[in-house]
Design a protein around this nucleic acid. Structure first.
Lengths: 180, 180
DNA sequence: GTCTATAAAAAGATAGAC
DNA sequence: GTCTATCTTTTTATAGAC
C-alpha cells in the first residue's frame, strides 16, 4: 500500500475520469481498461471485480478528505471561506474523487452513498465551531453541496452556472455575514 | 396526449420510482415493466426504446416545472421562501421527477442534464426580481440545489441530513435576511 | 394493447498462456 | 503482471401470436 503499482493507479484514474466526464454508464471495466491502455485481463489483476474498483475509488476519496479537513483547520482565511471556495471545482484530486463517487451513489451504489454521508459529517464537525448556530451550519453546508451539485452536472454537459472570481468572493462574503 | 393511456403512465411511474428509490442501475426496462405489472412487450408498445422512456420522464419534468414556476409567482409567503421550502422533498411529483432526471444526468444522459440546466434557468428568472443582487440569487439557488442534492443521496441510502420543521424555518429566515 | 419467444449486443468474470 | 480467448449474465430490442 505504501507504493501502489502505477498501472493500478492508471486504471483507477481512468475509471474516475470516465465517471466524471462521461457518467456512470460509460464507466465500464472494458472502457476503463482501454482508457488506461491495459487489457481487461490486466485490469482484473489489480481489481478482481467491478466492486473492487469502486471500493478503491471510495478509499481514495476518504484519504483525500482526511487531507482536506486538515487543510481547512489551518486555512488563513478561516475554515468557512476555505470550505466554500474549495467547493468550486478547479479539477483537483478531491473534487474529481467526490464527483466520481457521487455518480456511483446516484447509480445505486450503497457504499458510495454511505461514504458521501460520512464525508459530509466530517465537514460538519470541522465547521460547527466556526458558525453561529445550527441554521448557519446548514446554510454553509448546503451552499457547498449546491456548488458540488452544479459542478457534477456541468461535467456531463455544458459549463454550469457556478460563480467564479469576483462573483465567488461576493458569495463568500454573503455567506460569512449570514453565519458569523 | 390529452388522455394518456393508464398503462403507459404506470410504466413511467414505475421507471421513475426505480430511479429515485434504487438508482439508475436498477432502472432497467425489464424492472420497470415488472414493477408496473406489464410484460416487456407491453412496455415496448408504449415506449419503443429506453431512450423514449427517458424522454417521457424529461417531458413530465418540464410540465411539472411549468406549474411550479406559476405557483411560485403567486405564493403568499413570497417566491424566495416558497422556493427554499419546496426544495425539501416531501415526495411530491415534481420532487420525484427532478431526482429521477438527476439520476439520468449523472449516468451520462445528455438530454437529462440539459433539461436540468433549463429548469434551473427558469427558476433563476423567476427569483431574480425578488433578491438584492447576483450574489444573493446565487445563494438562494445554491441552497436549493444543496437541499435537492441531499434528498437525492438519501433516496438510495439512509435518511439524509435535510432540515425539517423549525430547523427549516430558521434556515429560510437566514436566507431571506441575507438576500433581501 | 398486451403477450411469449427469441435474437443481438454489452458487461462482468474466468482460465490459462506468456 | 499482462495478455488473449472464452463463458455467463444482463439488457435492449425484434417478431409475431393472440
Amino acid at each position: 500500500m505504501a507504493r501502489p503499482p502505477r498501472a493500478r493507479e492508471s486504471v483507477l484514474d481512468a475509471f474516475e475520469r470516465l465517471l466524471v466526464d462521461e457518467g456512470e454508464r460509460a464507466a465500464t471495466m472494458d472502457a476503463a481498461a482501454r482508457a488506461a491502455g491495459v487489457s481487461k485481463g490486466g485490469l482484473l489483476y489489480h481489481f478482481a471485480s467491478k466492486d473492487a474498483l469502486e471500493a478503491a475509488l471510495i478509499e481514495r476519496l476518504t484519504v483525500l478528505v482526511d487531507e482536506d479537513v486538515a487543510d481547512m483547520a489551518s486555512a488563513p482565511e478561516g475554515p468557512v471561506a476555505f470550505f466554500v471556495r474549495t467547493s468550486v471545482m478547479d479539477d483537483d484530486p478531491l473534487d474529481r474523487a467526490l464527483i466520481a463517487t457521487s455518480r456511483l451513489a446516484q447509480a445505486g451504489h450503497a457504499d458510495a452513498a454511505a461514504a458521501l454521508r460520512d464525508v459530509r459529517t466530517r465537514w460538519e464537525e470541522a465547521l460547527r465551531p466556526h458558525v453561529r448556530d445550527a441554521a448557519a451550519l446548514d446554510l454553509v453546508l448546503l451552499v457547498s453541496d449546491g456548488l458540488y451539485y452544479n459542478n457534477a452536472l456541468s461535467g456531463t454537459a455544458v459549463a454550469g452556472p457556478v460563480p467564479q472570481g469576483t462573483g465567488l468572493d461576493e458569495l463568500i462574503a454573503l455567506v460569512e455575514a449570514a453565519v458569523r
